[in-house]
Simulated assay, not measured.
Amino acid sequence: MRIARWTDGDQTREGIVVEDAVVPFPDEVTVAGLLAAGLDAARAVHDRMLTALAAGAARATPLDEVALLAPLVPASIRDFVAFEEHVEGVSASVDGKSEVVPEWYEAPTFYFTNPHTVRATGVVVPIPQTRRLDFELELAVIVGGVAGSTGESLDVAGAAAHIFGYTVMNDWSARDLQSREMKVRLGPAKGKDFGTTLGPWIVTADELDRYLDDEGLLAVRAEVYVGGTLVGEGLVSNMGWTFPELIAYASRNSIVVPGDVLGSGTVGNGGCLGELWGRGVDIAALEPGDEVRMVIEGVGEIVNIVGERMPAPPLPPARPRPRARHR
């Protein structure tokens, strides 16, 4: 099952994708509502809609006649760094030394990014004042509701039950801004929060079950193209942790809720330019007008054009203070 959001003229609609067309939900159904209700409820709605479509009681609109939106409004976005190969390459580009620190193996690390700057496939993505613009090719998992579960401190089996589906994710990155702020040992922040692409739709978990290997990892191929040229490719099953393990860790002493998005982190072997730079590949940073296309087997593809650099109001540097203890 594929679940999407789109604009049709001046109206925003939500529904399912059937072959090469979209079919709107009945009036009482929403993406957010289905995520909260869980996969079984979503399947029931899907079956009901197919019956209505076959009977002529529902209308399908060709995909090429609508503009897809991001397939959900995320409750939050956590982005992990789950590929060892990616860490090796990026560490060399940042520190000049290719390494994976021992702490990486101990637990899956993530950061929170901005759910309010999510972009859809097909749109131009405005960027900050950066000369080191990069992409990050990722598969994201979408959390759904489970009856009787609060989403708190889940074990791996409980976390697996919360997997509603998957979507393609591009974690846009301004590497020069990111490098500066990471030297303060906090972040990333402004190097990331200007844009994340999600799409083209949510593919429900059952659609990808056939790709699960013996370790519970998704053996799907992921590719990224810049201007039509393949620059990175890999298997999502090269992750150091499964998606249920990522969700379980995210929920530890915390909570995950329906609509949360968890990114896998950058797929290794050229899933971002930073990794290629670290491996000595001579490839230019992204510039306005560049096209970035990402394809993940069994899920779909997203395409964006890099927009113009956005001017930002000036901000003064920190004021040196005398460190007085009394007025």
Score class of each variant (00 low, 15 high):
I296S: 11
V156Y: 01
R279H: 10
L34P: 01
G234W: 02
I305E: 14
L72H: 08
F25T: 07
L230H: 02
G228K: 11
R131V: 13
P62W: 01
S153K: 05
T229W: 13
S149M: 02
P322V: 10
G38K: 08
G187T: 05
T51Q: 09
G228H: 01
G270C: 02
G232W: 00
V231P: 03
V81W: 07
F164L: 03
G122E: 14
A147P: 06
V23P: 05
D206N: 02
R131L: 12
S251L: 00
L315Q: 03
E88V: 07
P26V: 13
W172H: 12
V303Q: 10
V141I: 15
I305P: 01
G122V: 13
P322C: 07
V303F: 03
G227L: 07
S98L: 01
S91H: 00
G144S: 04
V18G: 09
G148N: 06
L154H: 13
P102V: 02
G165C: 09
K192T: 09
G165Q: 00
L177R: 00
G148V: 06
L69T: 08
P313Q: 03
L177I: 15
F112Q: 13
E215G: 04
G96Q: 03
R180P: 05
V73F: 10
P128W: 06
Q129E: 14
A41E: 05
W241S: 11
L133C: 05
A67S: 14
F25P: 00
E99I: 15
R321E: 11
S173Q: 04
V66Q: 08
R293C: 00
F135I: 07
S98P: 06
P314D: 06
S179A: 15
F80G: 07
R180K: 14
G151F: 01
G144T: 04
S76A: 11
K190H: 14
R323I: 03
P26M: 09
T61I: 15
F243C: 11
T167P: 10
Q178T: 05
K192Y: 01
P317D: 09
H46R: 14
V306I: 15
L53T: 07
I77H: 12
V90R: 06
A55K: 10
A318D: 15
G195R: 08
R78P: 06
E136T: 09
I16C: 08
L208R: 01
R321A: 08
L212D: 05
A60R: 04
F135E: 02
L69H: 08
F80T: 10
A32E: 01
A157M: 06
S93N: 14
